[in-house]
Simulated assay, not measured.
Amino acid sequence: MKVTVNIDCTPEEARTFFGLPDVQPMQQALMQQLQDRLSANIQAMDPEVMVRTWLPASIQGFEQIQKMLWNQMAAAMGAAGPSKDGKK
């Protein structure tokens, strides 16, 4: 024998039925504090400083890769060019 019971209620009604506390006001207060802090920090920061703070390694890494590729290309061009005596 199989019995199925469907209960149609909102999350608030289920919380009340099971005796759980309503934490929604606390969540809203914490989210407001978080939003205020983030807004204050973002307004205090210069966009250039933010970019340097968030992407320092990737920008430096990109520059290093660029230099490495240019050095390899220059070395390859020097090796492929004619030798000092004019012969390949």
Score class of each variant (00 low, 15 high):
Cys9Gln: 13
Cys9Thr: 12
Cys9Met: 11
Thr10Tyr: 02
Pro11Gln: 12
Pro11Glu: 13
Pro11Val: 00
Glu12Gly: 10
Glu12Phe: 04
Glu13Met: 11
Ala14Glu: 07
Ala14Pro: 06
Ala14Gly: 12
Arg15Trp: 07
Arg15His: 06
Thr16Tyr: 06
Phe17Gly: 05
Phe17Ala: 15
Gly19Ile: 01
Gly19Cys: 02
Leu20Lys: 12
Leu20Met: 11
Pro21Ile: 03
Val23Phe: 09
Val23Ala: 14
Gln24Glu: 10
Met26Gln: 14
Gln27Cys: 02
Ala29Tyr: 02
Ala29Lys: 02
Leu30Thr: 00
Met31Phe: 06
Gln32Ala: 11
Gln33Met: 02
Leu34Arg: 12
Leu34Asp: 12
Gln35Asn: 14
Gln35Lys: 13
Gln35His: 09
Asp36Arg: 04
Arg37Thr: 04
Arg37Lys: 10
Ala40Thr: 02
Ala40Trp: 07
Asn41Ile: 12
Asn41Asp: 12
Asn41Glu: 13
Ile42His: 03
Ile42Asn: 11
Ile42Leu: 13
Gln43Ala: 15
Gln43Tyr: 10
Gln43Asn: 14
Gln43Cys: 01
Gln43Met: 12
Ala44Tyr: 01
Met45Leu: 14
Asp46Glu: 09
Asp46Pro: 02
Asp46Cys: 00
Pro47Met: 00
Val49Arg: 15
Met50Phe: 13
Val51Ala: 09
Val51Ser: 06
Val51Thr: 10
Leu55Ser: 13
Ala57Leu: 08
Ala57Asn: 15
Ala57Cys: 06
Ser58Trp: 04
Ile59Ser: 03
Phe62Pro: 07
Phe62Ile: 15
Glu63Asp: 11
Glu63Pro: 00
Ile65Pro: 08
Ile65Ala: 15
Ile65Gly: 06
Gln66Pro: 00
Gln66Asp: 04
Lys67His: 08
Leu69Ile: 15
Trp70Glu: 13
Asn71Tyr: 10
Asn71Thr: 06
Gln72Arg: 14
Gln72Ile: 03
Met73Asn: 14
